[in-house]
């Protein structure tokens, strides 16, 4: 079954569309020509990154680049995640849970097996990120998958109704990151310049906090709006208004 709106989007080749295609093809040609003129070998920053790896506190060069060499990018990125949630929360309210079907017993017993394993995998990815592929982003995504599954089985009221804790966990990653970034300046370093002896520990601390915030951020985006807290629902029913 297709809704009618799918078909209002016609794909006929009008003169306007031909012009767009011509423009895009010209752009692609120019970009392709630029790509072809790049040198076939370039060491980039790989050699420098590997040489500094022993000072970075971790053994995985990508984690070192994410949290040490380019820590400033990642700090701002965590802030962007927070801004996305603020944007979504100010645009819409979450669908009331009644919109979901009650979960089937098969799904529930499947989740009982799978969810603990997923949480374990999230922790494992966080831990292994310091010396092999993995890290806070991958682990956070798996943890977000746990929250999404809980949402789909309508079991997540406890998570979204405690708004104070929810907000605390959402800003945890950014606050810890900023605290560490500024805190290392007390020891005489620059912003985000971890002392060599503690770099590994500090990176793990930031990553653990970021893992929780990333997971909750992605899950909050999936919920698609600010969940009604218990106080909101009771306030709404006090006024005789049905919460939307």
């Amino acid at each position: 079954m297709n809704a009618p709106d799918d078909f209002t989007d016609d794909t006929r080749l009008t003169p306007l569309r031909l012009m767009i295609m011509l423009f895009v093809l010209t752009l692609a040609g120019a970009l392709g020509w630029a790509v072809c003129s790049l040198p076939a070998y370039s060491s980039g920053l790989a050699v420098t990154a590997l040489a500094e790896l022993s000072n970075s506190g971790v053994l995985n060069p990508v984690t070192a680049a994410v949290l040490n060499y380019r820590g400033y990018d990642t700090l701002l990125e965590i802030a962007v995640l927070l801004l996305a949630v603020i944007g979504v929360w100010s645009l819409a309210q979450a669908e009331p849970p009644a919109a979901f079907e009650p979960a089937s017993p098969v799904l529930l017993s499947f989740l009982r097996i799978v969810l603990p394993l997923m949480i374990l995998i999230a922790g494992y990815l966080l831990w292994i990120g310091s010396f092999a592929p993995g890290g806070a982003f991958q682990g956070g995504a798996v943890l977000a998958g746990v929250l999404v599954l809980l949402r789909l089985s309508n079991q997540d009221r406890a998570i979204w109704s405690h708004e104070v804790w929810l907000r605390f966990c959402l800003v945890l990653g950014l606050s810890v990151f900023i605290a560490v970034a500024v805190g290392v300046m007390a020891g005489g370093g620059k912003l985000l310049e971890y002392p060599r002896a503690h770099a590994g520990m500090l990176i793990l601390l930031i990553e653990s906090a970021a893992l929780i915030s990333i997971a909750l951020t992605l899950a909050a985006l999936f919920v698609g709006g600010r969940a009604l807290s218990d106080e909101d629902s009771s306030r709404a029913s006090d006024n005789g208004v049905q919460p939307e």
Binding site: Y41, G44, L45, A46, A49
Partner: peptide
């Protein structure tokens, strides 16, 4: 890039 892909 060699010996590993550029991590940045």
């Amino acid at each position: 890039s060699e010996p590993v892909a550029d991590p940045v």
